[in-house]
Amino acid sequence: MQRDSDKLFLAIFLSIALHALALALAVTGNYPARLVDRPNAPQPKDEVLLLELLPPPPEEIVAKTLQSVATPEPALSVAPDIQVAPSRTAPTLASESQPISMMAPATPTAEEWAFAARYTLKNSKGYRYTWGQQVRSMMGTAFEGPDQGVVRFRVEISPDGTMAKLETLWTTSPTAEQLAREAIESMPPLPPTPTGKPLIFERTISFSPFVSDTPPIYRNDCLRDPPTFRNPFEGGGLGPPVRAEATENEDPESFSLEECLKQLPQDSIEAEAAHDLQELRRWGPALGR
């Protein structure tokens, strides 16, 4: 026990001695890790700025400068042989004396009517669209004001292409309805319907400088339509409720899918852009865009 105590005392003494020696070397500067005082921050030097006052310019120079600023530069003249044709679908900006307007779309060409006369899918979609374009092109320029509006018709066309029945479902402008009816009455002879049967459909004609009809998308016309929804509790409360089930729609045509795909045309850039814009307006708010 006495030896252990002596060893412990000797260890403590040596530790204290070594710490004291290290502190002494650091203070005297003979130890690499000596304590160094923090240097003083450099003091900013005083800078002297010399200002030289120049005499004012002569009055003649001032007068010429003011005259050059007040005189506007001559406008660039456009070459007389360059003419920019106005767009047939873009609206024209309004001025103080003329409201906003949009020219009527171009009349469907013979090639477009030939395609419409042989396209049978989706209740002759091409024929219905081309018929609406023909009517709108004959209605003339649409101006902003009380005469602009929309009219929706229920149309029945005979197999030979003649008008069999025209019924107005609703309209927001008597002028638009009158112009549309006058255009329909004066339409040139139309080709026969694609299916050889009466073509019955509903069509909305927009007579407005802010709305233009765009070509449809054809790439999905060979797919089956989703089941048609029906109110399962329809009846108006006049009798016991009868549950109506959703019905499956039939195939677009009786022929095969390969033959159906042969009818599909190449969708135009205008149709693709209009379709994308419609989808963005429909689903954009849900996606936070």
Rank of each mutant, 00 (worst) to 15 (best):
I100H: 00
E96I: 14
E259Q: 13
T109I: 00
S15G: 14
S254W: 10
E234I: 06
K262I: 09
S208R: 03
G132S: 13
T130Q: 11
P194D: 01
M139V: 08
M139C: 05
D160I: 03
A273E: 15
T109H: 03
A244P: 00
A20N: 14
E47Q: 15
P216R: 07
T171H: 10
A142P: 02
T89V: 14
A274T: 01
L54P: 03
S254R: 09
G126K: 08
A24W: 10
R224K: 12
M103Q: 09
L257D: 11
S87F: 00
Y31R: 10
V155F: 08
W283A: 09
N249R: 13
L14R: 02
I16C: 10
V211Y: 01
I269L: 14
R281S: 13
G237Y: 08
Q148T: 05
F255Y: 15
E111D: 12
Q266N: 13
P226K: 08
Q266P: 01
T109F: 05
E144R: 07
C222S: 05
L223C: 11
D213V: 12
D251T: 05
V211K: 01
P105I: 05
A106N: 02
A142H: 01
N40D: 12
E259A: 12
L238P: 00
E73S: 15
A41Q: 11
P227W: 05
R289I: 15
T107G: 03
Q263K: 14
P209H: 02
E185T: 10
M163Q: 04
E73C: 14
P39A: 05
E182D: 13
P192L: 09
F13P: 00
F115V: 04
F210Q: 11
A110T: 06
G284S: 08
R224Q: 08
R203D: 09
V78G: 09
L199E: 00
E258H: 12
A24T: 11
L25K: 01
L49M: 12
I184A: 03
A164F: 14
K197T: 05
G236H: 06
A286L: 14
P189K: 13
